[in-house]
Nucleic acid binder design. Sequence first.
DNA 1: AATATCATCAACCGCGAACAC
DNA 2: GGTGTTCGCGGTTGATGATAT
Length: 319
Amino acid sequence: MGSKSQEQKPKLKHKKGLWSPEEDQRLRSYIVKHGHGCWSTVPINAGLQRNGKSCRLRWINYLRPGLKRGLFSSHEEDTILALHRHLGNKWSQISQHLPGRTDNEIKNHWHSYLKKKVLKENASSTPPETTPHSEIQRYCSSSSITDHYSSPSPDKPTLIPASHFRENSPPPSTADQWDPQIFNNGHHHENGPRPALPKLMFAEWLSLDSFAATSAAPLVGCSNTKGFAGGSADFGPDVSGVFGGDNNNGLFHAYPLFHQGTSGGQNSMTTTVSDGSASDVFSSQFSFDDQSSAADANNYQFVEFCSDFQLSGNDVMYI
DNA sequence: AATATCATCAACCGCGAACAC
DNA sequence: GGTGTTCGCGGTTGATGATAT
């Protein structure tokens, strides 16, 4: 057992410490071209004097596309606090609820700032239920669907754990089956025009590790432990992609499509949800600003679409 | 200006789980 | 079933910059 295997290969001296820009470039280029596959072979093939573990960490925490850098918003902090109260130090699980944030980043932020904040709050004996993030705790701990569906505020999306559908009833498979309580804040629309549909997204989409590579479009990562089977992706100059949803455990098909035009300007991501037939489909569109930080590695561009998502109280996010 | 202390964050380490043989 | 390998997670460390004395 253990992680000694890589290190003990005939005393190959692995470099440690901070990564240089050249090393970053080598690693990024290699993974963009070939995917990471087996991490232990990545440094060998990429010509790096690092061990696979170090490469994996560097990719996950720093080079992976879609990472959000910078200060944590108050909403993110609230989410961390609420989830930490429920999950404890499960940084990896917490990070799944914060698109673009890594577990390491969240862990650091906790130890450097949030932990003290909590201690201070406890010292002043503020009841946890009065904190603004109690709604997040509610969906974590409650078994009531009505609790899940109640939108916490006009400015915040409704968050629904995917486990709800596994534990209760299957999710709606068509647009018409969606509970208006969720999508229209309780307002039915019998015969009139369908109200503006909410943005719909899964946190998993925000992890590019969920994307499956195709021969035409070698892409990073291929695995998803929850069985989210990918479709195809093309990160060429015209960034576009189609991703199949989970069809094995009762969840409906969901195909996020995104496309970045060559003319520049604003990018968009269209999310289409269907029951598998072409006849009953609805879609919503995300917008995200052109990110100047989009990497250009060997003519592949990354869409940093996590950075500027703004979900509102009319939106639903499956976590 | 020099030094000490604190805060932040990238990276390392060790462990356990999952998997392959 | 036993052993080795790989991966992912969480705790911890150490370098660096900011701030206080």
